[in-house]
Design a binder for these strands. Structure first.
Length: 1068
RNA sequence: GGGCCCGUAGCUCAGCCCGGUAGAGCGCCCGGCUGAUAACCGGGUGGUCGGGGGUUCAAAUCCCCCCGGGCCCA
């Protein structure tokens, strides 16, 4: 019993239904598990590490879908290529954004409420539940779009095992002497009561602040002042010194009875702002001359902290802090409240004094201002006091962009706080060396990464929050000894008990015994930065170090794939953790993908209202269409979302479906059994187009594999699309149509089937990673039906290898030439109004390129078929030379300037010998002669050449030369053409009557004598084409005909009637 | 302010690494096909390759400067 492919043409194409069917098929047959099992039997490991998406919402961003789809296509490719693929997905679950969502839900306004009203335990459980719900929803969506990853077993950063793995790295850092505690000036949110990482400082508001010019009295000089400008009066109590630029010009200016010092570049502006017109420049001096100039702080006596700071009160050189574009060129430095200030202070040995507490209120050290909120009462009181003391030169208001907390919109402040650091700056050389070993796609990502490493700073790992990995540092209450715990086991060895959960607050209860003094140790309350979490994923997701075997076996990570925002994010944090923990880069290859932008090219964001919900997307566009659309985009470039683009992609799917439906229809009708008829069996019956398609197929396989190996999936996607749409549908199928329409079982037909079957099957395998649903459908409906041993799923099959014996590059090049020749011939036909249906006597190819001539000679028959000509004549330009009459018109703008007063001679020449000149230019590009003593050289640019082909020729020019169609239709062609017109109309009526492709009919036909004569002359042809058992020429259709219609052919009336009939086929 | 990326037809984008006659799809106009058909095919239309300068016989492509957009920093 022959096994034959199923027939897709019997069903209506519905991509949505197809995908539902496949989804069910996968579920019912446990396909993912089987794929995984097969993969795990391989010895060649492929460790892929999923960058964990942040589980803070239920609906995934279309960009997140893109991210996973890119990963999926590579994973599927590697699995089909025989690798043992590690594909555990992950979720990033800790951190402030999630805490804030829970705060909102619980109505928390200030952090203290969490401890006092809600309880940390309940807060943590709420966070966990929130994350669990999000993860579930996200997983559903990833599965929905066909991502084959280990969804039953994701790594989750909040689990105890993961936390324990995280501790291990902190301990490593400590052991290597990299962990330290220190002060760092960071943005701080007084509502959330925590620091914000630099990247979190992303939102700004237009806020108004005081803009004051303050006079700092210069020591030892009567009524002489440094003029400083500030918009943050609350930082003045913490002033330590004043910064100036050594290379800027400064001036001493007399204003009233005072002398002020400020930058020359700012003088005019400041005076105008202060409304001072009467001033006198006393002296001009270089910034460096100010160095060391001492001053007195105007509020010194009110602020106790000044006692410690006053010894630094002088001008210091700090070009990085001074600009000529704002202020006075003298910058007040409060090292505890400014980033640059702190850096300069460090060099001077000045302390980072911060006078604001966690909640934004001035501290004890601020003396008089203690208890005042920084941007309100403190500002007002300080300005008032300065005014009373005559220390304000001018007071105004400024509206400027001021950073606010991206969660609660509270204005931020800069503040020195105690934090835990990892001294990665000490590892810089190692980091650079290791980064250099990584393979980057595209190459510029490496450059960007290296640039970033140059600006490396120590890593602040601590956060003063709750939902995170607890910092595993315990401090002895008695002796102050600090110890870092690297595991739960160590916790127990030091006298602690494993808490029910490693999060706060349970971990906070764990007390240890001090190894130094035997005293009680308590944990510092901080948690870790969330970048820490994902950064350790490369080993923590494998359970290292509790389970060492897995990491030892899989390391290093073979590839990772994320967006270009992660160059500074995850790619960096992974490398950092790898170097801290293991002294090497934890991953080998990186593929960077772009950003999903909206239709206008702006960032797509919920708050901008230009956001496309994943659910909406998937409900409107089939999954594979979305996937292929995402994947054809140059992977590292940004992608503009586009409904229209998706719609176009849908059209390609229709073409693809039609190709498969076409193939399956005839294969199943003719009971083609691919196991019985193999390619080798029909080799000698193949036509050039068969050999050509097979060669193209090898090229496809080769190019596809190269692209995939090199992490350029978009090139593979485009190649797949081009092959099926351009090569198979638009060319091959067109050429072989007539070969499959024949009734009998011919070897030629079988050659087509074997060729098409191989091409489509191979294509399906290659396409499987990209459009897993559709490929699976074809696999089940066509290939698995036809082949006994076919794997149960296309995703369990092997990637095809190119087979050189079917490669024929010359043929591919020939066909390339032939396609453009045919195109030109069709254009020539069209110009002459000769429908393709009507055969023509002759097509003449006058080709100027020898490779085209050779190609056309070799593929002459194919050209004849494609352009429907009885004869094709091939030759060089001379072939048409004699037949064409040229007209030549001068281009005065080109000739004029060149020949000037000789122009009339040239014009005369053109009139005299137009044909000769034109032919020379067309054929050789140039015409040279000496005419009446003038040396003339003419090219195409000098003249406009038009061709006057004779009446009976239609000529078309293309890059390869000229193609001419002989318009003279002989009796034979005329009859054949009319017969084909009749056939076409009968076909339309068959369709109208709803007949099946295989049904037979009786045809009645009555009309113009010439039409009737045509049909009679071509009776075998007509009958075969329309599957007639009988053709009654000259008879009106009977009243019981299934359909009857009147047509017009070449302006003459024609009546046709049809009635379904039993076979057999027409015999004369 | 800095680093990197992008800027090509009305629209979406290939081509740029490795210089050699500007391409595709969509749109629009015209035509064809009708046994893959609520499809499909062909032709036409349309471009200062963001702008300027340089290297070169030759630049969309290599180099420099500028402009606009994106990402990441400051």
């Amino acid at each position: 019993m022959a096994r034959v492919p199923g027939d897709l043409s019997t069903e209506r194409y519905d991509q949505f239904a197809l995908e539902e069917w496949v989804k069910r098929f996968w579920e019912d047959n446990d396909v993912y598990r089987k794929v995984k099992e097969k993969s795990s039997r391989s010895q060649r490991k492929m460790y892929f590490l999923d960058g964990p998406p942040y589980a803070s919402a239920k609906s995934i961003h279309p960009g997140t879908a893109w991210n996973k789809v890119v990963k999926d296509v590579l994973l599927r490719y590697y699995r089909m290529s025989g690798f043992n693929v590690w594909d555990r997905p992950g979720y990033d679950t800790h951190g402030l954004p999630i805490e804030v969502k829970i705060e909102q839900k619980l109505g928390v306004k200030v952090k203290k409420e969490i401890q006092e009203r809600i309880g940390i335990d309940r807060f943590i459980m709420e966070c966990k539940r929130f994350v669990d719900e999000n993860m579930e929803a996200m997983t559903r969506q990833f599965r929905e779009i066909g991502v084959f990853m280990d969804w039953d077993n994701p790594y989750i950063t909040y689990t105890d095992e993961y936390i324990e793995s995280g501790w291990w790295l902190v301990k490593r850092a400590w052991e290597r002497g990299l962990l330290y505690e220190g002060l760092r000036v960071l943005h701080w949110c007084p509502r959330c009561e925590t620091t914000l990482a630099d990247y979190e400082v992303s939102e700004y508001r237009e806020l108004s602040d005081p803009s004051i010019y303050v006079k700092f009295p210069v020591k030892g000089r009567e009524r002489e002042y440094l003029l400083v400008w500030t918009t943050t009066p609350w930082t003045l109590p913490a002033n330590a010194f004043v910064m100036a630029h050594p290379e800027m010009k400064y001036v001493r200016v007399r204003v009233g009875g005072d002398v002020l010092i400020l930058a020359k570049a700012r003088l005019e502006h400041v005076m105008r702002e202060a409304g001072v017109t009467d001033y006198e420049v006393l002296e001009e001096l270089e910034g460096r001359e100010l160095e060391g100039l001492e001053y007195t702080h105007p509020l010194e006596d009110l602020v106790p902290a000044q006692r410690e700071l006053s010894r630094f009160h002088r001008v210091v050189m700090a070009p990085e802090a001074v600009t000529p574009y704002e202020g006075t060129g003298l910058v007040h430095a409060a090292p505890g409240h400014g980033t640059v200030d702190a850096e300069v202070a460090e060099k001077l040995g000045a302390p980072l004094v911060s006078l604001v507490d966690d909640r934004g209120f001035m501290t004890e050290g601020a003396g008089k201002y203690r208890g005042m909120y920084f941007r309100r009462e403190a500002n007002e009181a300080i300005v008032r006091d300065l005014e009373e003391r005559g220390a304000v030169f001018h007071k105004g208001v400024i509206v400027h962009r001021y950073p606010v907390c991206w969660r609660c919109k509270t204005p931020l402040l800069l503040r020195a706080t105690r934090q835990w650091f990892i001294a990665v700056t000490k590892l810089k050389d190692e980091l650079v060396r290791e980064a250099d070993k990584i393979e980057w796609r595209p190459g510029w990502a490496k450059e960007r990464f290296m640039n970033m490493l140059r600006e490396l700073r120590d890593w602040v790992i601590s956060r003063q929050r709750f939902w995170g990995i607890p910092l595993p540092v315990w401090v002895c209450r008695s002796c102050g000894y600090k110890h870092v715990v690297g595991s739960v086991k160590e916790l127990e060895e030091m006298g602690g008990r494993r808490p029910e959960n490693l999060h706060r607050p349970w971990i906070d209860e764990v007390r240890l015994r001090c190894p130094k003094c035997g005293g009680v140790m308590e944990r510092v309350p901080d948690v870790l930065d969330v970048w820490f979490d994902s950064g350790v994923a490369f080993y923590a997701s494998l359970g290292y170090p509790m389970n060492r075997e897995l990491w030892e076996r899989l390391k290093p990570v073979d590839f990772i794939v994320e967006g270009h925002d992660q160059i500074r994010g995850w790619f960096f944090s992974l490398l950092r953790s790898g170097v801290i923990g293991f002294g090497e880069a934890p991953y080998r290859r990186v593929l960077v993908h772009g950003f999903m932008l909206d239709e206008q090219g702006r960032e797509m964001h919920k708050s901008l209202g230009n956001y496309v919900e994943f659910e909406e997307l998937i409900s409107k566009v089939p999954r594979d269409v979305v996937r292929l659309w995402l994947l054809q985009n140059t992977v590292w470039e940004d992608l503009r979302f586009s409904w229209k683009g998706l719609d176009l992609m849908k059209r390609d799917f229709t073409v693809m479906w039609n190709v498969f439906a076409f193939a399956s229809l005839y294969m199943s009708l003719d009971r083609f059994d691919p196991e019985e008829t193999r390619l080798e069996d029909v080799r000698e019956h193949m036509e050039v187009e068969d050999r050509w398609l097979l060669s193209r197929l090898q090229a496809l396989v080769e190019g596809y594999r190269r692209a995939m190996e090199d992490l350029r999936p978009h090139e593979a996607a485009r190649a797949l699309r081009d092959f099926i749409v351009e090569d198979v549908s638009r060319w091959y199928v067109r050429l072989v149509r007539r070969r499959v329409w024949v009734e009998e079982d011919t070897p030629s037909k079988r050659a087509v089937y074997a060729t098409l079957y191989t091409a489509l099957k191979t294509w399906t395998l290659l396409a499987a990673p990209f459009i897993p649903f559709t490929a699976e459908y074809f696999w089940q409906k066509l290939f698995r039906k036809a082949e006994k041993e076919a794997p149960e799923s296309v995703h369990l099959a092997e990637m095809p290898e190119p087979d050189e014996k079917w490669r024929d590059e010359r043929l591919e090049r020939d066909m390339e030439a032939v396609r453009s020749i045919v195109e030109a011939a069709l254009a020539a036909r069209q110009k002459a109004g000769l429908k393709l249906r009507r055969p023509v006597r002759k097509v003449i190819l006058a080709l100027r390129r020898s490779d085209y001539v050779e190609a056309a000679e070799r593929l002459k028959d194919l050209i004849a078929r494609a352009v429907n000509a009885k004869e094709v004549e091939v030759g060089g330009p001379e072939l048409l030379g004699g037949a064409l009459e040229y007209r030549v018109e001068p281009d005065y703008s080109a000739l004029g300037p060149r020949y000037k007063r000789d122009l009339p001679v040239v014009l005369e020449l053109l009139k005299e010998r137009p044909g000769e000149i034109a032919r020379a230019i067309v054929e050789r590009g140039v015409y040279k002669t000496v005419y009446k003593g003038v040396e003339v050289e003419l090219t195409r640019d000098d003249v406009r050449i038009s061709m006057e082909p004779p009446e009976w020729l239609s000529v078309e020019e293309f890059e390869g030369g000229l193609v001419a169609v002989d318009k003279r239709i002989g009796r034979e062609e005329l009859l054949e053409g009319i017969a084909r017109e009749v056939v076409r109309r009968v076909q339309a009526m068959r369709k109208e009557a709803g007949y099946h492709v295989e049904d037979y009919v009786v045809v009645w036909l009555r009309g113009d004598p010439e039409v009737e004569e045509s049909v009679k002359a071509m009776i075998d042809y007509v009958a075969r084409e329309v599957r007639a058992v009988e053709v009654r020429v000259g008879e009106e259709p009977p009243s019981d005909a299934d359909v009857a219609r009147e047509w017009e052919v070449d302006g003459e009336k024609l009546v046709i009637g049809l009635k379904r009939a039993e076979g057999p086929a027409f015999k004369r």
